[in-house]
């Protein structure tokens, strides 16, 4: 039996990597990948904690929900990125700074 801490370490590492990618990448696709990593880190947490609920299996169920939602979100995000590219001819989020104060 793998102890809970290992799951948590892995998911924390995954989350941090995803966060790092979101903050540092200059490419919208890569940021999207970072987001996916962070979502996956959270799913891993859900599933890991799920072993304490053997009756309802809420963790697993939520994990499935999140996977579906993430897939939908990716589709939406990709469309946004494509529209962005159409408008400003780039997918570098730094260049699309029309909201600058």
């Amino acid at each position: 039996m793998i102890p809970l801490q290992h799951f948590l370490f892995i998911s924390a590492a995954l989350f941090s990597l995803g966060l790092f990618a979101v903050i540092t990448r200059k490419n919208a696709i890569q940021i999207l990948m970072g987001i996916e990593l962070m979502i996956n880190a959270s799913i891993l947490n859900m599933v890991a904690f799920g072993k304490y609920d053997k009756i309802d299996n809420t963790g697993q169920v939520f994990g499935l929900f999140i996977i579906v939602l993430a897939a939908a979100a990716v589709a939406v995000a990709l469309v946004i990125i494509m529209n962005l590219y159409k408008r400003v001819k780039t997918i570098n989020p730094d260049k699309a700074n029309t909201l600058r104060g």
């Binding site: 903050i23 700074n97 104060g101």
Partner: peptide, 18 residues
């Protein structure tokens, strides 16, 4: 000074949020 926060860069907003 506050305007400086509104850089228009997605990631900055994200960092602020974080």
């Amino acid at each position: 000074w506050l305007r400086g926060m509104q850089s228009g860069k997605l990631q900055h907003y994200f960092i602020w949020m974080l």
